[in-house]
Every structure is written in structure tokens, then in C-alpha cells.
């Protein structure tokens, strides 16, 4: 078996012929490259350098703000998707929840409830959508791809019905609006904070450990006593709530609540960001920081090409190709890194 091949190298580490003089820079570089997120950082830096040389406006304050707005909402959604992808599931409906949540908040506010109460109500509805997704997937054993495809249409129809298809303005309450996305960098600050918190949850809590165990070895994890149903359902709820929150932030930023906001576009961007950032679609592997960086790379591409004046039609061609190139690079670098570990 292949196991015997793998077993030999770790046992005998000393006799490995070390090159004459270990260059300290090389060692730092190697240490860095062994980190899971290293490859995507390299790609991001390369893209920044390229776009900055192509157009000096790329690193201007104004463009950095635009870029941060591109990144923020998608990064928040991809943090939730990573948790689901790690435990072996996916949520296609998160882009619809993104549009629904601000409407719930709006209507609750119109009905006389304080804005923050409306916001919490919106998030509770999101959690219920996640619970629905999770229960159908786990209890009725419908693959999450299908379950959430169903809720995708269901929630979209619901949002269009309650909004009657028209966008509305966000309630204006000054400070709350500023904190919740309207101030220049508030959305990206939320995104970074959520990324950090979720990464801690993933790497340093029981919930995170059990999420990895559920995705890595479903049967094994349940044999040990991990409640895999609870982990999966919980992550569905988490993903929906993060999606709804991202939608609310974005609504405050643009001061308008649009029933057609988000949708499959932002959901696929979030999943692509997660996968580019090193999350395996097969479960068990992934990091939140990686997903943030993956989303950053996608946003740099979109923003950079826009600055270069590439037409909208050719843009999608280039973006698609760039995603593939980034993925291939990521896979190659990961293989290389794994080879270096032995």
C-alpha cells in the first residue's frame, strides 16, 4: 500500500542531505510557502504589482476604497461558505438570503420597530432559512446542492413578492447607518473582524474542530461521538446569517434595498473565493483567512480590469481564465509545498 511509502520519510529526518549552507532568506521563504495561504498571497501580490504598473490609479486612496467595497460583502459570505464546505456541504441560496434580510429589517422598521430590532429580526429569519436548509439536508438526506437550489428560487420569489419587485431606501438613522456599512471603510472593517472571529472559531474551538472532523470523516466522527447533524445544521444557519448580515451592510452602504441584489453572482464569487483560498470542495480542508484572500484576488481582478478599461464582455472571459490560472497555480504550489514537507 501507499502507506508504506509515506511512512518512511518522517521516521528518518536526520540523514536527509542538507544543502551546504542554509540561506536564512531561503528558510524564511520556505517556512512562508508551507503555510496554506501562502500561494494565494503570492498571487495577490503579483496581481497588485501588475495592475499598479499598468495603471498608477490602482493604489490610489479612492480605488482602494472601491476595492474594499468589492471585497467586503463577498468575503463575509465566503466565511460562512467555508464552514459549510469544510463539513462537506454547500449553500447556493445565500445570495437570496442576502437580498431578503434587508427587506425584513425594512418592513419591521416600517411597522414601528427600532432599526436594530429589525436588523435582529432579519438575521433571525436568515437563521431559520439556514435551519430549513440544514434540516432538509441532514434529516431528509437531500444533497445540499439540491436543497439550497430549491431554497434559492423559493427565497428569491419570497423577496420579490414582499417587495413587489421595487427597491426601497434604507431607513436613515445617522450613526447606525454609518457603523453598519455606510461609512467609507466600515464594511471592510466588519469583513476583517468577521474573518478573524471565524478563523478563531475554526482553529481554536470545539465547533471548528468538529466541523473539520465531520467533513474529513463523517462516519468516523460520528463513531467517536461528534453530533454531525448538529454541526452541519449549525453551519447552515451560520452561513445564512452571515449572508443576511452582508446584505444588510451592503444595503446601508448604497442606501438602497434592491430585491435583485446579490443572487447567484455573489454566491458564486464567495464559493470561488473560498476555493481559490484553498478550501476543498470535498470537505475537511479550508481556512477563513484563505477565503478572504481568495475573495481579495477575485476583487483585484475585477477592479483592475475595470481600471484598464477592458469591456464588460471581454472582462468575463478574462476573469474566467484568470480564475482557472489562479486555481492551477494554487494546486501546483500546494503540491510543491506538500512535496517539500517530506
Amino acid at each position: 500500500m501507499a502507506e508504506n511509502v509515506l511512512s518512511a520519510p518522517p521516521v528518518q529526518t536526520e540523514p536527509e542531505p542538507t544543502p551546504e549552507r542554509p540561506n536564512p532568506w531561503l528558510r524564511v521563504a520556505r517556512l512562508f510557502l508551507r503555510q496554506r495561504e501562502a500561494s494565494i498571497v503570492v498571487v495577490a501580490i503579483a496581481l497588485i504589482i501588475y495592475f499598479q504598473f499598468s495603471n498608477q490609479a490602482f493604489l490610489s486612496t479612492q480605488n482602494i476604497r472601491t476595492l474594499s467595497q468589492f471585497v467586503a460583502a463577498t468575503a463575509i459570505i465566503s466565511a460562512g461558505e467555508v464552514m459549510l464546505l469544510i463539513c462537506g456541504e454547500i449553500d447556493l441560496s445565500v445570495g437570496q438570503v442576502y437580498a431578503l434580510a434587508p427587506f425584513i429589517m425594512y418592513f419591521a422598521n416600517q411597522a414601528g420597530l427600532p432599526l436594530l430590532v429589525g436588523l435582529i429580526l432579519g438575521l433571525i429569519v436568515c437563521a431559520l432559512v439556514g435551519l430549513f436548509n440544514g434540516l432538509i439536508t441532514v434529516m431528509l438526506k437531500v444533497p445540499s446542492f439540491i436543497t439550497t437550489l430549491g431554497t434559492l428560487f423559493l427565497i428569491n420569489g419570497l423577496t420579490l413578492t414582499i417587495s413587489q419587485g421595487f427597491p426601497v431606501l434604507t431607513p436613515s438613522e445617522g450613526l447606525i447607518n454609518e457603523i453598519l456599512g455606510h461609512a467609507s471603510y466600515s464594511e471592510i472593517i466588519w469583513a476583517i473582524a468577521i474573518t478573524i472571529v471565524m478563523q478563531v472559531v475554526l482553529s481554536w474551538t470545539r465547533w471548528g474542530l468538529h466541523t473539520v472532523a465531520t467533513g474529513g470523516n463523517l462516519l468516523g466522527a460520528s463513531e467517536v461521538g461528534v453530533n454531525v447533524a448538529r454541526i452541519k445544521i449549525g453551519n447552515f444557519m451560520l452561513c445564512s446569517v452571515l449572508g443576511g448580515f452582508a446584505g444588510i451592510l451592503e444595503a446601508f452602504r448604497i442606501t438602497s434595498i434592491d430585491p435583485l441584489a446579490g443572487g447567484t453572482d455573489i454566491m458564486f464569487m464567495a464559493v470561488a473565493g473560498a476555493v481559490i483560498g484553498g478550501t476543498a470542495l470535498t470537505g475537511g480542508l479550508g481556512t477563513i483567512v484563505g477565503a478572504f484572500l481568495g475573495t481579495l484576488v477575485l476583487s483585484i481582478l475585477r477592479d483592475g480590469f475595470t481600471l484598464l478599461g477592458v469591456s464588460a464582455f471581454t472582462f468575463d472571459i478574462i476573469l474566467g481564465a484568470a480564475i482557472l490560472v489562479a486555481m492551477i497555480l494554487n494546486v501546483r504550489l500546494r503540491l510543491w509545498r506538500e512535496a517539500g514537507r517530506e
Binding site: A213, G216, G220, V224, G284
Partner: peptide, 11 residues
């Protein structure tokens, strides 16, 4: 201890 070991490869 089953043959499938119930270990999580990724951990």
C-alpha cells in the same frame, strides 16, 4: 477499534 479507524485524516 474498527478497521476504518475513525481517525480524521485532516486533523
Amino acid at each position: 477499534v474498527y478497521q476504518d479507524l475513525a481517525l480524521v485524516n485532516e486533523l
